[in-house]
Design a protein around this nucleic acid. Sequence first.
DNA 1: CGTAACTGTTAATGCTGTCTTAATTAAGCC
DNA 2: GGCTTAATTAAGACAGCATTAACAGTTACG
Lengths: 223, 223
Amino acid sequence: MHVLLVEDDPLIAQGLVAGLELQGFTLDHMAHARAAEQALQLGHFDVMILDLGLPDEDGLQLLTRIRSQGKDLPVLILSARDTVLQRVAGLQAGADDYLLKPFDLRELAARLHSLLRRSSGRSSNLIEHHGLTFDPSSQAVQLHGEAVNLSRREQALLAALLQKPGHILSAEQLQDSLYGLGDGVESNAINVHIYNLRRKLGSDVVKTVRGLGYRMGVPHEPT
Amino acid sequence: MHVLLVEDDPLIAQGLVAGLELQGFTLDHMAHARAAEQALQLGHFDVMILDLGLPDEDGLQLLTRIRSQGKDLPVLILSARDTVLQRVAGLQAGADDYLLKPFDLRELAARLHSLLRRSSGRSSNLIEHHGLTFDPSSQAVQLHGEAVNLSRREQALLAALLQKPGHILSAEQLQDSLYGLGDGVESNAINVHIYNLRRKLGSDVVKTVRGLGYRMGVPHEPT
DNA sequence: CGTAACTGTTAATGCTGTCTTAATTAAGCC
DNA sequence: GGCTTAATTAAGACAGCATTAACAGTTACG
């Protein structure tokens, strides 16, 4: 799960990055509207957290411009402005949710999950795929009712693949989804994690599409 | 826009019906979980407003059951319960938004619009051609419903031809489309790839126009 | 505080499918 | 029939990936 965080207060940003990464999100943090807009052009994000009080531009203006470009990524506004009119203005500018500062990290996480669920067209928080279930909010994986112990990277990889079942994801896309845009790995780390996933969930969980990337497949049969 | 309102307090319900219908929504009002569930089976709704304090069942239970049936209509929870845990519980049960009583009608309307915009904004740009489908976003090819496994070059070739059905593309044009303008191949590679495409999709997928190039044709019949 | 277990990354090796090449056969055209 | 163009086939080169092992960093626990 790749989150673009647009927030100028370094303290809040730092807390959010740490807290949400613990919950399995991958964050890229920008402190200015300009930088955020560039980041959006550069890579793919699953959701944006937008602070309204930015130094170089009002968050609503940024949001409006993003929407006018046809981008439809879910946007959650984070703001201290609490009047009905301001909240309505936020939603009308194209936000999908509006959370007040100060906020509770658990609620923010739950709302992010809810937005992601909706944007990926699912009806429930639980992702189910041929006997394999993954709960993004609790980060628990089960295969045919049996709990499976996955490491952080393995979980992130599985989540990225499950988010778009049927789609082919290139190694680069997966890398962005696991590490964020800035610092990636310089080796076949993704490759190795895929291999480990297959050892735990069956060699067919992930299909290789030679030259293009990987795609979700069918896991182990029940024993 | 068709809204299913599930709310047992007749005063609030009446106000909502009147207020939202003024804003162009169409409302159906149910006061019990049972009735709401039946209404969902019977007809189509674009969004549901759900009060948690229902007489016959807790709203969260109803929501969970609806989600387990695979229904993915957007749900906005209306509740007086205001603790973080309760809001998180609501979102985890599959709600898309959570609004506190007492609420402002303008904000409710704005949030409904936000939900609807998101749920309707999903379109696919599938290319279809005589039973052959190609989805550029997932890079998946299907012939009469059956998935077909194409290699990278074969896909690129097919995509180039499908982009301009009816047009004749010279071997040189196809080469540019596969390899870029700079460095091409110096043999009949395109020719061989065409041959392999025909083996997988039927000898008539690609028509040869002698002296000029190739153009899209009709693939295999369904077996 | 130190050891053990686990996790993540890097790197080396070998395998496999794909791409290209080239040679041969078949088809269209004057 | 001779010439040109395309289809078919097979073989080698190559790139991409799986697999394995080693190492460093981190966490858990005595």
